[in-house]
């Protein structure tokens, strides 16, 4: 009966993942490997960026809006924020679907999201990346790594660490069923600063991590060390988010750009 319960929980988390995220690894890989009839529009210089803005992301950039005359770096930064806000919204709905999460203390739910969403976001972002670039605008565009690197500093420093993480993370060859449990484990983490009811969260965390371990053994029988490798990735993601938060603070201080109120809430007093 215990094994049946574990399988049910794993299935519930996987279903919540498929339901709540507009992009997943299976969809992204189909596009990135050229198995769709509509290949993504490639953004590789200022000209293709402008073309993409007029068609793919017109709503985000607000073609008639305030950003129209701003430099490319600021417009791209704004687009990244829009995507982040959407993903945070999706992650919140996903978290609410993880059994037990909604019965946690509401302030603890906020704390878990505040510290977990960016780690989860960067883990899932890897699905949309290959060594050459990143899918954008729901997979209708592909922005090249070289173009992102060619932007002026500090904006050029934004994505390269995520590509470096993604290349190592993608080498583990996780599928969406693995990622669903991994993302749930990121969110249900008992050592976030300021949690009130730690023991309640630790019980949830233990059951999710245990199910992740069993699932990996069954789904990847040829890689016995996948579970410890993934635990290491949790630490790597924490470091990646710390560096990202510092870069965003620097951009906020030195550049004339606004930060979305939801993202401000998350970054404020984070680390």
């Amino acid at each position: 009966p215990q094994l049946a319960d574990q399988k049910t929980l794993a299935r519930q988390i996987y279903e919540a993942y498929l339901k709540n995220f507009s992009m997943n690894k299976a969809k992204a890989r189909t596009i990135l490997t050229g198995k769709t009839s509509n290949p993504p529009f490639v953004i590789h210089d200022m000209e293709t960026l402008q073309l993409a803005e007029q068609t793919l992301v017109a709503k985000m950039v607000g073609s008639a809006g305030a950003l129209k005359d701003r430099e490319a770096e600021v417009r791209i930064f704004h687009c990244c924020q829009c995507t982040s806000v959407e993903t945070v919204t999706e992650l919140t709905e996903f978290a609410k679907s993880v059994p037990g999460f909604s019965s946690l203390d509401l302030n603890d739910q906020v704390t878990l999201l505040k510290y977990g969403v960016y780690e989860a976001l960067f883990a899932m972002l890897a699905s949309s990346m290959n060594k050459d670039g990143l899918l954008v605008a729901y997979g209708s565009g592909f922005i090249t790594r070289e173009f992102l690197k060619s932007l002026r500093r500090p904006f050029s420093d934004m994505m390269e660490p995520k590509f470096q993480f993604a290349m190592k993370f993608n080498a583990l060859e996780l599928d969406d069923s693995d990622l669903a449990l991994f993302v749930a484990a990121i969110i249900c983490c008992g050592d976030r600063p300021g949690l009130v009811n730690v023991s309640h969260i630790e019980v949830m965390q233990e059951s999710i991590v245990h199910i992740l371990q069993l699932h990996l053994l069954a789904n990847h029988p040829d890689d016995a060390f996948l579970f410890p490798k993934l635990l290491q990735k949790l630490a790597d993601l924490r470091q990646l988010v710390t560096e990202h938060a510092q870069l965003v603070q620097e951009i906020k201080k030195t550049e004339d750009t606004s930060l979305h109120p939801l993202l401000q809430e998350i970054y404020r007093d984070m680390y």
């Binding site: 919140t92 609410k96 509401l106 739910q109 906020v110 939801l262 809430e265």
Partner: peptide, 20 residues
């Protein structure tokens, strides 16, 4: 609570959109 009012709102109300 005031510090994280959008996160609170998202957690309590799934239909509330976040303005981009």
């Amino acid at each position: 609570k005031e510090k994280h009012k959008i996160l609170h709102r998202l957690l309590q109300n799934s239909t509330s959109p976040v303005e981009l």
